[in-house]
C-alpha cells in the first residue's frame, strides 16, 4: 500500500489500483456523512479531484493518486458512509482505476515514509 501527501492510499493489483483515504484522514475528518464516488468510465489524471468526502464539519476533495480510467466505484459508501470511519484502509475503498502508468504508484510513499510524514504534521 502506498500513500500520498493528501492522505489517499493506493493498492496495486495487476493494472488495477484500489484507492481510498487513510485512517489518519478519516480520523481528522470526524464522522463521515457523505461520499461522492466517481463515475465509471471517467478518465482521471493524477492530482485531479475525483471524489468528495464530507463530515459534519468538513468537506474535502479526494485527489486521484494515479492516472487512468475508473473501472469500479464503491456504491456501499453512499448508503453507509460511516464505513469510512470504521474501516478506511480496506472495505471503505472509494474507487478502482485501471492505471495507465504503474510507475506513478511506485513514486508514492510507502507506509513507513507516510508515517514519518505524518509525524511532521
Amino acid at each position: 500500500m502506498r500513500f500520498t501527501k493528501d492522505h489517499e492510499w493506493v493498492e496495486l493489483s495487476g493494472d488495477i489500483a484500489t484507492i481510498g483515504i487513510s485512517a489518519y484522514a478519516a480520523n481528522a475528518l470526524g464522522d463521515v456523512v457523505f461520499v461522492e464516488t466517481p463515475e465509471i468510465g471517467k478518465a482521471v489524471k493524477a492530482g485531479d479531484g475525483f471524489a468528495v468526502v464530507e463530515s459534519v464539519k468538513a468537506a474535502s476533495d479526494v485527489y486521484a493518486p494515479v492516472s487512468g480510467e475508473v473501472v469500479e466505484a464503491n456504491g456501499a459508501l453512499s448508503d453507509t458512509p460511516e464505513m469510512v470511519n470504521q474501516d478506511p484502509e480496506k472495505d471503505a475503498w472509494f474507487a478502482k482505476v485501471r492505471v495507465s502508468d504503474p510507475a506513478e504508484v511506485e513514486a508514492l510513499m510507502d507506509r513507513d515514509a507516510y508515517e514519518a510524514f505524518l509525524a511532521t504534521l
Binding site: 464530507e54 463530515s55 459534519v56 464539519k57 468538513a58 468537506a59 476533495d61
Partner: peptide
C-alpha cells in the same frame, strides 16, 4: 452545512 461558505469557502 458543509455545502456552505463557512466551511467550503471558495468551493
Amino acid at each position: 452545512s458543509t455545502r456552505e461558505q463557512h466551511i467550503r469557502r471558495d468551493k
